[in-house]
């Protein structure tokens, strides 16, 4: 499958999302004619949008790998919660309320390890025990919503952590995690479209029997992608934490639907990692709009502006929602009765 093919089909969907963002800006600008567009769209806004987009992009890349191979991991949101919480707990364990930058990086690594450990269990339930993928994925979210704040309360006596440390920017005030994410997105694209593992992943999702008769173990491919999806979601959660600097466990926790938006991001991107990352960036921009409005002094109810990404998800999913899912998604594979 050629790159041109993908971009041709994906661009319509992404175009829709761009349109939505522009309309959102337009609506904002009609509220006030005092403020020029150049004050709203600043370098700082773009950079913060990138920052907001990274967790979504990471979860999306992981999720699309799993789904390409035939497993719908709708537990991304839950794994992000676990990732964010484990990073916070690690930071706190290593450096108390004033961790160093080294501790931040250690926390990122720890979050990935914890997520991998949990996803291994999850993958065994899905693949070996043929769990209902939708129900089990929801369960991961619920478990995350319960146990992360619980453990937070055990450690800190409250559902949220005290202030820890956020990651220091490197060049141009940018977070190094943005670079890391870009690297992961590009690498994911190369693996998916230019290596044999990518072929196997696609075949596992479209026609697992074809892969099996080619002598490749379908379920091993699926274990690998599901565990990768958990690792990426966990990393996404940890990145969110490393940018925020403390863990918030109230309401739907600090992750607050970003895992779900990640799923929508890769649907928009038509299962292409680069397309998914682009969609994530647009969602990041919507997410930052609220902050930006306040910065430039536009007085909109923040409660409502915060809902923009969710509304965007529904609008775009409806208008361009008919993505072609891999044929075998959701079906457990057994090579012998």
């Amino acid at each position: 499958m050629s790159v041109a093919d993908y971009t041709a089909r994906t661009s319509v969907r992404l175009g829709g999302l761009v349109l939505f963002v522009l309309i959102a800006f337009g609506v904002a600008l009609t509220f006030t004619d005092e403020i020029a567009l150049e004050r709203l769209v600043t370098f700082g806004f773009l950079s913060r949008s990138l920052e907001m987009a990274t967790p979504i992009a990471l979860a999306a890349v992981g999720g699309l790998y799993a789904e390409k191979s035939g497993v719908f991991n709708i537990g991304l949101e839950g794994f992000m919660i676990f990732g964010a919480f484990s990073a916070a707990a690690t930071m706190y364990a290593l450096g108390g309320t004033s961790p160093t930058q080294g501790h931040v990086w250690a926390a990122l690594v720890a979050a990935v390890l914890v997520s991998v450990a949990l996803t291994v269990l999850f993958a065994v339930l899905l693949i070996h025990f043929k769990a209902d993928q939708i129900v089990a994925g929801l369960a991961v979210w619920f478990v995350g919503l319960g146990f992360a704040p619980f453990t937070a309360a055990v450690i800190w006596g409250s559902r949220s952590s005290p202030g820890l440390t956020s990651i220091d920017p490197i060049a141009f005030g940018q977070s190094p995690l943005i670079l890391l994410t870009i690297g992961i997105v590009v690498a994911s694209w190369v693996v998916l479209y230019r290596t044999r593992y990518g072929n196997w992943i696609q075949a596992a999702g479209e026609n697992p029997e074809a892969l099996d008769t080619a002598g490749i173990d379908v379920n091993r491919v699926r274990y690998a992608t599901v565990i990768f999806s958990g690792a990426m979601a966990g990393l996404g959660g940890a990145v969110l934490l490393a940018h925020a600097g403390n863990f918030g466990g109230t309401g739907e926790t600090m992750v607050d639907g970003r895992g779900w938006i990640g799923i929508v991001a890769y649907l928009f991107g038509n299962y292409n990692p680069i397309g998914a990352a682009a969609a994530a960036l647009l969602f990041g921009a919507l997410d930052m709009l609220n902050v930006q409005f306040q910065t430039v002094g536009i007085d909109l109810p923040s409660r409502l502006v915060n809902l923009l990404p969710y509304v965007a998800v529904i609008v775009v999913l409806t208008a361009w929602g008919k993505t072609r899912m891999p044929d075998a998604v959701g079906e457990p594979y057994e090579s012998e009765e």
Binding site: L125, F129, K130, A131, D132, V135, A136, L138, A139, V140, W141, F142, V143, G144, L145, G146, F147, P149, F150, A153, V154, R159
Partner: peptide
């Protein structure tokens, strides 16, 4: 005992319900 534990247990119930095969085995 932080009360969020109950939410976690609810999540686990859902998780187990999703895997009838586990109990069958």
């Amino acid at each position: 005992v932080p009360v969020q534990l109950i939410d976690g247990i609810v999540g686990l119930v859902v998780l187990f319900v999703a895997v009838p095969e586990l109990f069958r085995m």
